[in-house]
């Protein structure tokens, strides 16, 4: 069984079916890609997985445990972490303080004996924010803000890491470094789920890719298979495309 299983999840907003029976999984030690046009339901799916949005039907299973109606807080404590497409930084705090809040929270519920101050410093180095560690986050460019969110989620030592458009706002060099970082995280045994518009990055780092369109999974498989899938091409380029 996979570390994270999403089974038949549907979400209805009024008359709009945002997710329609989505089933997919993410393995520990792997990067799983989730792509699809805007409005396909990627962020909604993340909200369901982390408990910010209750599904109309379907289940989310983490380490063989059905999460049911658990609150976001409880899910986080079971090892779930995420970043946000629309940044959710602690804008009144510095980079270091942002990560420190997460490290302190982790320490308070996990009973970890690690010094949170040291955890924070290692996270700052890991995501490469040493030079701006004392800057207030709302003075940073978007690309770096996304790294703060990443560092913050890592400070809670997650088993499953959900990244929502983490590379948007990064330049090419930053993206290369970011790909390396993602591989390292997976190598540590984390299940990384990557929602990303940068299809090249997704194809490069992911072991498996799921494609969402209008709330449904229209294709799943290895990157090479996805790139030639007729349904995917139609969704991205329009049905008339050859």
């Amino acid at each position: 069984m996979s570390l994270l299983e999403i089974a038949e999840v549907s979400v209805r907003f009024g008359g709009n079916l945002a997710l329609d029976g989505v089933t997919l999984s993410a393995e520990a030690g792997e990067i799983t890609g989730l792509i699809g046009p805007n409005g396909a339901g990627k962020t909604t799916l993340f909200n369901v997985i982390t408990g910010l949005q209750s599904p109309t039907s379907g289940r989310v299973i983490l380490s063989e445990r059905d999460l049911g109606r658990l609150s976001p807080t409880k899910r986080a404590r079971l090892g779930m972490a995420r970043t946000f497409q629309r940044l959710e930084l602690f804008s009144l705090l510095s980079v270091r303080e942002n990560i420190r809040v997460a490290a302190d929270i982790y320490r308070s519920y996990s009973g970890s004996k690690d010094d949170p101050a040291l955890v924070v410093e290692s996270m700052i180095d890991k995501v490469g924010l040493r030079e701006v560690a004392d800057a207030r986050v709302d003075s940073l460019p978007t690309g770096q803000c996304r790294l703060v969110e990443l560092g913050r989620s890592l400070a809670t030592r997650p088993k499953v890491l959900l990244l929502d458009e983490p590379a948007s706002g990064q330049d090419d060099n930053e993206t290369v470094a970011f790909a390396t970082l993602l591989r390292e995280l997976a190598a540590d045994g984390m299940a990384v789920v990557l929602v990303e518009h940068d299809v090249a990055l997704v194809m490069e780092v992911c072991a498996r890719v799921h494609v969402l369109d209008f709330g449904r999974v229209i294709a799943s498989g290895a990157p090479s298979a996805i790139q030639t899938d007729a349904a995917v091409l139609a969704a991205y380029l329009g049905s008339g495309a050859k």
């Binding site: 986080a76 809040v101 989620s153």
Partner: peptide, 12 residues
Amino acid sequence: KSSEAACATLGL
């Protein structure tokens, strides 16, 4: 104060 959603998903 800045983001309740982020705090919850960090386990607060």
